[in-house]
Design a protein around this nucleic acid. Structure first.
Lengths: 417, 417
DNA sequence: CAGGCTTCATTAGATGAGTTAACAAAGTCA
DNA sequence: TGACTTTGTTAACTCATCTAATGAAGCCTG
């Protein structure tokens, strides 16, 4: 459906130029030449190709500076689309975004955890189909699916390495299965990493900066972005900030470590603390038997917001523990920004932001070299799902758009039974 | 003094090929072609250029596999040299290494901390000159100097951001000054980062792995290497593992953080604990007034080695705390190997290694994805100085050798007074 | 041991990305 | 209106890399 680049080298250049246009939202050819280090002549040619493919369109001109005004080019948002699927314990969020990462459709359903993976993934596939249909998105324009989950995973093979939500999910080829159902390439990734890269595309972080993201839903995860790319260690199971120790003498966690952050600061810990706080549990009508502790947590956060002292004390304590981990994160990764993302920051995000910023200002080692900003995510509670879609876009943009059309089954799912 | 590559692209390719040859120690052209993804024809041409420049030499042939045997090429160790200078509090180590990173000369002097920076750097410069002279190294063959220190630094400007060892060192342009004295480019870097990259060149880590290094001298530092390159955050002040908190409720550290690892596990902490242990202080004749606590620490480590229970208890405790930090390091960076380097591991390294390995095995989050090995450094107590020299080599190898001969003053020291 | 086979290495011609330099286009300013 | 400035395109050229053919150096077999 488009002109394929003739060589790998040109594909890389095209990806580079596309990413520059994307990051700047609108850019002239001279600016692109300066930013990429290429010649105006080369940029001219590359842009012509991209316009012929419909990926890029001219959009007005900038104010003249004594000569011919610059013609601005920008991405054609409707040229491609991408799907993001987030699997949480009790919630599955599905979004469709356009080429610039803006959400064009969204749906969600509850309880993927109580289903066997086959059924959950079939449901995901049918929901994706329905979403694409209602949004009137041409399927040929969908570059792929970003499937995000929590916990350790084998990203290459597209499977989860923990028996969560239930035993059946362990080692189940979720990416391959979904790719087969949908006939689209599916990338598996970590929810926090996805949220982090989503911030890069849609947020206010400097494209050249190194920044971290703390993602809090039922658990606590993290992601770090270096020069626009997710930091990946040897197996892409990096920045698992929920399971770093904040106390050597702390209690043992099922993960094997002691004093894990999640057991001090996570929603489940806050709810547990609230249930043990006389008066608070009754006041907020907290149900100790409720399995979905995120709603209980949201109630506590709301109470903290409106000034309930006990609730506020609990949230601030959680924030202070998170602040300690944020300091560790910035001391090790030397980030200049920390983004707070995920549904568990939506209600009391401003309390968390203030306390964590305070801790970081006081305690970060590298503050002599530069300050560290703590900011909320622009993508709200859907940050992970949107980020997943963006990851698929980014992967296509920098690599895959060299081989258009040929891809109907996931590259990550070569070895499905 | 050599044929310059004609373009930036070719320079990159040459650097790539050189690094492949270096990593493999000896390689045939077909292997290089396979590893780089280039054609045999291209490799042939590039290797011919490198041989004409004297950087590479043919060295025998490999066992034939049914056809013409492969001609092996390797780096010519005598083609270039590099200098590493490590500034510790009480010790300055200077080494000269050849193109493959092997030490060809070494010297050291005590007490850089008690001198003003001008004098210390003049002394360094004269020592470097003397060392090059006695080792009969042609100065034209020296590609640069890697100057390594501890604590926060501005790597680009080549200066330290803390008033250590003394106030005069704060913001003093040490890299620029040394570059001017020596007429050689000087790179400033972190000691732990240098030790880490030294391990990559000379050690047994897999070139494609992501690994971490814990460097312990008077303080505790860290470095992470990803695909052969030092991880650098936004300001290169990353992996400051000595100042991550291992206890949220711990005592405040001068750095601003609470419960810093260094105050639990560092040599000064161990010496302090030993002085407070009845009997041990007398038994080991520890001097509370001694300013150089590294000798006291070495004595404790030696006692632990030969079975003194109290000393062993202290060392094991220190190791366990370090283990906690090592777990945090691997949980965040997802490393597959952790290297222990620096003078403070030389005496009781095996105790540290065993305890840290045990902690990592039990507590690391990503152990479901892969194990994490804990290994001692191959470069012993000079790991940082050797690593500094290697950093200068690596920088030249991947970039600078495009513009031979023209460089007589440091690129990092453009703005010296 | 001659000739065939295999694998390695080099050479010659083709390809194509990117550059330089000249030129066309579209504005401002006197 | 014409000189000047800046943007963007066109055309000829450079050079890194590839493909394909050839030479080189060993093994194996009859």
């Amino acid at each position: 459906m488009a002109t394929s680049p003739t060589s790998a080298s040109r594909a890389r250049t095209r990806g580079l130029v596309l990413d520059m246009i994307r990051a700047s939202r609108a850019s002239s050819r001279v600016e692109l030449a300066a930013a990429t280090g290429l010649t105006g002549a080369t940029i001219s040619e590359v842009v012509r190709e991209l316009m012929a493919d419909g990926l890029v369109v001219e959009a007005g001109r900038s104010a003249p500076t004594g000569g011919k005004p610059r013609t601005l080019v920008q991405l054609n948002p409707q040229a491609r689309y991408s799907v993001g699927v987030q699997l949480e314990r009790n919630l599955c969020v599905i979004v469709v975004v356009d080429l610039v990462g803006r959400q064009v459709a969204r749906t969600s359903f509850r309880g993927p955890a109580v289903m066997p993976p086959e059924r959950a993934l079939r449901l995901v596939a049918s929901q994706v189909d329905a979403l694409l249909a209602t949004a009137a998105v041409d399927r040929k324009k969908v570059v792929g699916v970003g499937l995000v989950g929590y916990g350790p995973q084998d990203r290459g093979a597209g499977l989860l390495l923990t028996p969560q939500p239930s035993d059946e999910w362990l080692n189940y080829p979720i990416a391959g299965q979904l790719a087969e159902s949908l006939g689209l390439p599916v990338l598996l990734d970590n929810d926090a990493a996805a949220a982090a890269i989503g911030e890069y595309w849609l947020g206010a972080v400097d494209p050249r900066s190194t920044y971290g993201c703390i993602y809090m839903a039922t658990g606590i995860g993290g992601g770090v972005v270096v020069a626009g790319e997710v930091y990946r260690g040897s197996s892409s199971n990096s920045v698992e900030i929920g399971h770093i120790s904040i106390n050597v003498d702390g209690d043992e966690c099922p993960c094997g470590n002691v004093g894990c952050l999640e057991n001090y600061a996570g929603p489940s810990a806050v709810v547990r603390q609230a249930l043990g706080t006389p008066g608070l549990a009754q006041r907020l009508a907290l149900d100790p038997a409720d399995d979905d502790f995120l709603t209980e947590f949201a109630r506590i956060a709301a109470a903290a917001n409106v000034g309930d002292p006990a609730a506020r004390g609990l949230i601030e304590r959680s924030a202070r523990y998170l602040g300690c981990a944020a300091v560790t994160l910035s001391t090790l990764f030397d980030v200049d920004t920390i983004v707070l993302a995920g549904p568990s920051f939506t209600v009391a995000g401003s309390i968390y932001q203030a306390v964590i910023q305070q801790e970081v200002d006081r305690r970060t080692f590298a503050r002599r070299a530069h300050p560290v900003r703590v900011v909320p995510s622009v993508n709200g509670s859907d940050a992970a799902a949107i980020g997943g879609a963006v990851l698929a876009l980014q992967s296509w943009l920098t690599l895959n758009h060299a081989e258009e059309g040929a891809q109907s089954v996931s590259a990550t799912a070569a070895e499905t039974p």
